[in-house]
Amino acid sequence: MNIILVSRRHGRSRTISLSALIILASLLLAGLIALGVMLTLQLQSRGGDGIIDPYAVSQWQKRISGQEKELARTREYTEEQIRALTVKLAELQSRLTRLDALGERLVDVAELEDGEFDFAVPPAVGGPETDTGDYNPPDFVTALDQLSSLIDDREQQLSVLNSLLGDRKIQSATFVAGRPIQRGWMSSRYGYRNDPFNGKVAWHDGVDFAGKDGSNIVAVAAGVVTWSSDRYGYGNLIEINHGNGYVTRYAHCKELLVDVGDVIKKGDVVALMGSTGRSTGPHVHFEVLHRGKSVDPAKFINRVAQF
């Protein structure tokens, strides 16, 4: 396609092709663009502004400063978390130490054989390894929380067990059984008998064990001494409270070896045999009282604890 141009002045005409016109317009537009770019660069150079102007630099510096502060806060938070985890680990370690001590006490109370439960060494483990596949272990904090919960549960269980075993041991220790002497023989039984001083029938609240003057008198159960002095008719008397309503008495003693308030164990020597008070010779008058009333000591002398 061609365009015909007609001159008014000379009346001549000129023919221009459309493709040439497009090329000319493109050249003109490129020139204008280049001129605009040159003018922009010149204005920037005159104003002292480069591609990276001071405002952009200041903004970047602000961003860097903010990032540094955020990094500092993150570091401080991380250090606090590490300190908290350290404290938590120390707490768990102390609780495990207490559990080990409690476990050793339970082994002792339960009278288990040596080596059956040794809390001084790690527990024995073993077995073949298996593929865990895509197993993802819990995070560190969650693992600590789970361990803490497990320790709480074990503490409660061991405390209950310790209480039960302690009660059982206390019951066994305070169980009234046995003879109050190490050597000697029973010289008078519980109940009615002829009074050795006037021959009349009289009630005898205990049993008598005769023996060598000065021989040992032992407690038949653990307990607390509630009397250690002279008492009318008894001479020198030891009285022991064993709990559960049981009290034992050891009378006519030559010498008292314990005081009121002393805690004694089964088999402890509490006095020496004598003949003080209303007595005809060296012996120990042995009484058992339950809730304030005398009972026949004979059934306690030969009985065996069922624990």
Rank of each mutant, 00 (worst) to 15 (best):
66 G>K: 09
40 T>E: 06
235 G>V: 03
36 G>R: 11
77 Y>S: 12
23 I>R: 10
96 L>Q: 08
260 V>Y: 02
162 N>Y: 14
115 G>W: 01
24 L>P: 00
18 L>S: 11
34 A>S: 13
40 T>F: 15
207 V>H: 03
79 E>W: 08
12 R>T: 11
238 I>A: 05
64 I>Y: 07
250 Y>C: 02
160 V>S: 09
218 V>W: 03
194 N>M: 12
267 G>N: 04
48 G>K: 02
72 A>W: 06
152 D>K: 06
122 P>A: 07
104 E>L: 08
139 D>E: 14
304 V>I: 13
187 S>Y: 08
62 K>E: 08
181 I>R: 00
220 V>W: 01
133 G>M: 06
97 T>G: 03
40 T>D: 12
152 D>W: 10
296 D>P: 02
265 K>T: 07
234 Y>I: 00
150 L>G: 12
235 G>N: 01
111 E>C: 01
141 V>L: 06
30 A>P: 00
102 L>Q: 14
134 D>I: 08
58 S>C: 07
221 A>N: 03
73 R>T: 14
56 A>W: 12
77 Y>F: 13
157 Q>A: 08
54 P>Q: 13
51 I>V: 15
165 L>H: 12
154 R>W: 13
142 T>S: 09
277 G>K: 01
27 L>Q: 14
16 I>A: 07
36 G>Y: 14
147 L>W: 05
18 L>G: 14
92 L>E: 13
210 A>F: 00
261 G>I: 07
108 D>Q: 13
275 S>T: 03
176 V>L: 08
291 R>L: 05
141 V>Q: 08
290 H>R: 13
295 V>D: 05
207 V>Y: 02
214 G>C: 08
281 G>H: 07
92 L>V: 10
200 K>E: 13
214 G>R: 00
86 T>K: 13
141 V>H: 10
110 A>E: 09
239 E>I: 13
65 S>N: 13
21 L>G: 04
58 S>R: 11
114 D>V: 12
303 R>Y: 06
291 R>V: 02
248 T>S: 09
151 I>Q: 06
56 A>F: 14
47 G>K: 15
70 E>I: 11
195 D>W: 02
133 G>T: 09
63 R>K: 14
12 R>C: 14
295 V>Q: 05
212 K>Q: 15
80 E>T: 15
212 K>I: 08
179 R>P: 05
99 L>Q: 06
34 A>C: 04
228 S>E: 00
279 S>V: 01
78 T>V: 15
247 V>H: 04
304 V>G: 06
201 V>N: 03
205 D>R: 13
148 S>H: 11
